[in-house]
Amino acid sequence: MTVVALAGVTRVHGDGEAAVHALKGVSLQVGEGELVAVMGPSGSGKSTLLNIAGGLDRPTSGTVHVDGRDLATVRDLAALRRRSVGFVFQDLNLITSLTAVENVMLPRELDGVRSRRARDEAMAVLTEIGAAALAGRFPDELSGGQRQQVAIARALVGERRLLLADEPTGALDTLAGDEILRLLAARCAAGASVLLVTHEPRYAAWADRVVFLRDGLVADATDAPMASAR
């Protein structure tokens, strides 16, 4: 089953002479349980792609479907993001005045779930990812890697099965970064879907499929079989 599907997506910022074509016609699908990495240099359009896939931005043309729903027909994108799509960014993911478990509960509480149930759900997902021991700690009592673990838990709490990650390993050393990818791959094996944007080959390599973005277009992907010509 396809969880997110972009078809012929373009995104133009500004108009006339000053128009910037961030995406020039990108089609991309992420299936259930799949980890897909988008690689590209800065300015290749990869963050724009991620924002459009999660309804943080709208395409200039083309369509985006999340869980089979055309985002162009969704009025309340914020509700969709709370219920269907989780985001993890490079940093500034957590609210510093809340404990880890309170951070994870937040999207559920905003969605009207009672506090007690939201806490149970938050503890369940923290336990699933092996981070239950961090529940009572504040973000500044956590390492960079632990903060990202909590951010991932928050992105997956409740019914959400689609996680969009923009350089989630950006501030981490390679050991902590590998652990984050190990966690994301494990969540995919358990049925979640992840679209990961990164410029680092070592993290992209954890993906089932790697898509190379260049100047707003998909230049290549690792899913087509290709003979080695070394």
């Binding site: 690689m39 230049a219 690792t222 290709m226 010509a229």
Partner: peptide, 13 residues
């Protein structure tokens, strides 16, 4: 370069 990059990524995977 494009072909090599994809092949190298497969190796890395």
């Amino acid at each position: 370069i494009r072909r090599q990059r994809t092949a190298t990524m497969r190796t890395l995977q």
